[in-house]
Amino acid sequence: MTFRVGPRTNQIIAYTALLIMTVITIFVLFFIIGFILKNGLGQVSLKFLTERTTDMGKAGGIFPSILGTLFVTLLAIIIAAPIGVGSAVYLVEYTKAGFVRRIISFGADCLNGVPSIIFGLFGFIFFVITLNFGWSVLSGGLTLAVMILPTIIRTSEEAIKTVPRAYREISYSLGGGKLDTILKVVLPTALPGILTGVILGIGRAIGETAAVIFTAGSSLGLPTSIFSSTRTLAVHFYILAREGISMPKAYATATVLIIIILLINFIAYRLVHRFIARYY
């Protein structure tokens, strides 16, 4: 870096460059959201949301995919939330800095970086083939549960850590045991933070494609049990767009996806801020 132009001028140039790049980044986000909504919002109607899909997706609605997304995501959360929160409680309340904590943290961090196609491969060979669950809501939900587990562990851990020490001490001084203190004091206080993690996990699960396409399959039938194959919204959108089946339907499906993701992020953001406002 030469300073021949003078540090003041240099600062102005740098500031302008940074500002422009930040504006471009934010523009990209608004452009994506705006573009999808502009082209898709007109196609979304109550009928589109509640009708069966016909003609491979060229006609009809997306009701089976909504149901499929709901089932798969619900199953993933039912499995991952208790395990994730339990892990976080153990990490914060029962371990001291040391080997055990390091190895559990390492597991969560590493799992967090594993790409979704690897989860897809794993879910396919383990749940679909080895355990013989087939392409089903069950296989898809289990695969997604594994995938979102680290998100829930990490966020819950942060939330539990911020519960003031004094809360625990008061509970102990009133004769509360460790488990009672966790269940009646720590977890309720950390709840908004924990919910944020769960909601972010839901967001990841809903937007996921690579991990569910090989585990839940892509059947357009209405899922009737956890052993039914199903097609989630993201997978449906992928097939519509990639195989060029119907652009209007693709835009409409993308609109539904984007609105769900925006809502989820908004709720998570509000929860975080309520939580922060209370403890900082």
Partner: peptide
């Protein structure tokens, strides 16, 4: 900016 992480990869591809 963090919202960019929430947008599904299929939407980016699209």
């Amino acid at each position: 900016i963090e919202l960019l992480a929430g947008i599904p990869s299929v939407v980016y591809g699209f």
